[in-house]
Write a protein that binds this DNA or RNA. Sequence first.
DNA 1: TGCGATGCGGCAAACGTTATCAGCGGGCCA
DNA 2: TGGCCCGCTGATAACGTTTGCCGCATCGCA
Lengths: 398, 398
Amino acid sequence: MDPGVADVTVRDAVTVRDTATRGTATRDVTLRDVARASGCSVATVSRVLAGTRPVGADTARRVRAAAEELGYRPNHAARALRSRATGTVGLVLPQITNPFYPALVRELTHALHAEGRAVLLADCDDDPVAEAGYIDDLLARRVDALLVVPADERRSRDAVAAAAARVPLVLMDRGCGPGVADSVAVDNSAGMALVLDHLAATGRRRVWFVGAEGTASAAAERRAAYAAGAAVLDEGAAGRIALGDFSVAWGRAAVDLVWEARPDALVCANDLIAVGALQRLQQLGADVPGDVAVTGFDDIPMAALAAPGITTVRQPVPELAAEATRLLNQRLAGGEEGPQRAVRLAPELVVRESSGPRPTAAGDERGAEAAPGDRRGPAEAPGRATRVPAPRQVTGPE
Amino acid sequence: MDPGVADVTVRDAVTVRDTATRGTATRDVTLRDVARASGCSVATVSRVLAGTRPVGADTARRVRAAAEELGYRPNHAARALRSRATGTVGLVLPQITNPFYPALVRELTHALHAEGRAVLLADCDDDPVAEAGYIDDLLARRVDALLVVPADERRSRDAVAAAAARVPLVLMDRGCGPGVADSVAVDNSAGMALVLDHLAATGRRRVWFVGAEGTASAAAERRAAYAAGAAVLDEGAAGRIALGDFSVAWGRAAVDLVWEARPDALVCANDLIAVGALQRLQQLGADVPGDVAVTGFDDIPMAALAAPGITTVRQPVPELAAEATRLLNQRLAGGEEGPQRAVRLAPELVVRESSGPRPTAAGDERGAEAAPGDRRGPAEAPGRATRVPAPRQVTGPE
DNA sequence: TGCGATGCGGCAAACGTTATCAGCGGGCCA
DNA sequence: TGGCCCGCTGATAACGTTTGCCGCATCGCA
């Protein structure tokens, strides 16, 4: 029909920088090329490929065939310029090397890619100033939306609020002051309650909390939840609190502070603290869980890999990611006027050896099943873990 | 001078979706606005802001002032469309949850952001098919270049090669068959040699290698380097090899396979294997390092945090990132015709407790200095680590 | 058979930059 | 003093899409 089809890919061949490696680069095919090949107009091609408006059945077929044959790939830059949407989401993290975030990044990127978006990543190294810079850059790059785990409860606030005024923005994991933007996080109180219930049920009575100072949501909420729930165990528990930061080093140090009080359980505000505490306890010759139970929070990979495996509160990472993207999509779909929403998801208690039963003087009954042969299994701790979900999702308006 | 300045930001105010949260959004300022405000043409403004061509001193000043005052931010989409360069780099990873990669991502993003680029991240979940899809998408988004850690030595090859034909591409960490693209990785042989030298110097003689099967570069090169270097220790060492995969589970299982042979050192092909081996050894009541030394490879955070800390080969992550960006920039600057380059960087041995001296029946002499007080320190293992660099960087043409 | 509605397709104008080309002064040299 | 060159600036045409608007058949209905 149209004799000009065959030469489309060759015509106008532009030698970009001639020479070797990249070969003789031809212009990449545009809508115009597809239009010419399929014998209709650019507008029609655009419509059938983007599906924006119904178009005749066999015209559509011709277009699709031509596009396929020429290997047409839409130019996102042009599309972004014209339609004012890049199909891109910015993800701003405080520290990708914090062992909790890789799993979150994984789930977020998968969820977003599944709906055709791409993810621009920024790691701001726990520096709110750098964070503000990255946010600015991402906005200049015209991201459609932002996902932010703020570096600092207070000092991130201005930049985040300013960004939230320009694009849909969802805070994750950490708060950033009230009324700034939609947010998604784990229900820290429910998680702490799961831990305390478990310890109560297994007969622990002299419990200490090893937490972190500061006003960041994880630190403050877990601390408060412990204080509120521990009184049930015994009178003094609510007051037995040692505060440092969220590090392994502090976990080690804390043991030296509280060990002479002979606790029978250490409730740590996150897994890193628990790892440190466990190490120091073992150095001191304590039997975990015989003498003392240790629990963490977050369920980072290391918690499962420690020996004994650490009982911890697992954050529902896939659900957090799904909820965050859901919120984003809702805002992007025009729900910009709705009230801000703070979603809290229920965590799950993962019971491992570090809080096992006290009397059954744990000998070597476990680990035997980790025989050579099951090399392919996931890197789980040898002992079997029991999972206890919290009551279902709590979503509250601000 | 120009009385029309003040109304620039207000004129043409377009209510994007009117209503609440986002406020009444005004058009964002363009070159035209700056031009009008500074009383010159768009072309001139573009020139002074992009610095593409010299422009009169005070014109430049006027333009910059106007841009500043109006809060002009260049539109990357338009720029990308016109200049055929997006200022973005695609980063394709096999598994962000692999504990070695977060540090790499961190360094890469910092290095790239420092030169004004943004990073599009894709995690392909160890699936070469998904990987090909992500690469395709990134190319359609017109990334200027790609950084790829291929998921599979063989099955990633076609997609990577095809991509390398379209944009500058640097392979990292893992190979992808010969002649595909520039690559940057650690010198696995040198690393293994460091380990073997160290073990020889500390009197270990009955050494076993716990490695991984397969043809991937890390597995094959470390295996080969062990076989080549172990003969120096004693006659049989080169043959004492157990192969599984790169997991904690295999590390545990391997101990059960080799323990009855009473080795005095286990050389593990990476840190995850070493963690598993260490756990199982401790379960069996073995003294590490008294009875047996354990070494790893990579220096993931967990290696420092294990108790005892694991002696390992540290990959020079910042240097790997710097080298990769250097290679990219070189290609982007037009060096597309040069021969492919395979850069190998020298690693460093980090000696921790797991390979400590044998005789000094390690009691509790360490750990005491981890007194409460130094809560702020980095999450390092309590014992002091010694670092031994390998001879300097080896870069070889393909 | 005439007329409005409807469905499909084309034309052309944006989107905000960069790059090419030409104009227009002023200085320098003859 | 006239011609040339050069340094600076302004118009303007792209870059590849999307989209509003209009025309043209076709179809149903009276």
